[in-house]
Amino acid sequence: MQIPCPLCGPRDIREFTYKGHATYLDRPAEDAAPEAWHAYLHLRDNPAGATRDLWYHGAGCTAWLVVERDTATHAVTGARLAREVKHAG
């Protein structure tokens, strides 16, 4: 597997650390209900197919990426900087 880092170009997955589903970007407000925190930390759609997840390019530019890929085939179709995804809302 290779991930197309927007800053570094296509790189081997050994350079990256996986964090989890991109749902991690939607951190609840500090005073959100416990259910929201439970959903954020634990519950997952866990799709068998297209997904978006967070990867850290630790052996490259050290950016956090949102990677678009397929969990059933391991095909990687795209990657964006997490901070841009976040600001785009």
């Binding site: 597997m1 081997d12 650390t17 996986y18 866990n46 197919g49 997840d53 969990t71 059933a72 391991h74």
Partner: peptide, 13 residues
Amino acid sequence: DFYASYAARGNLP
């Protein structure tokens, strides 16, 4: 392998 997957096969690293 550490990433979410349903492929029932892994990668070489």
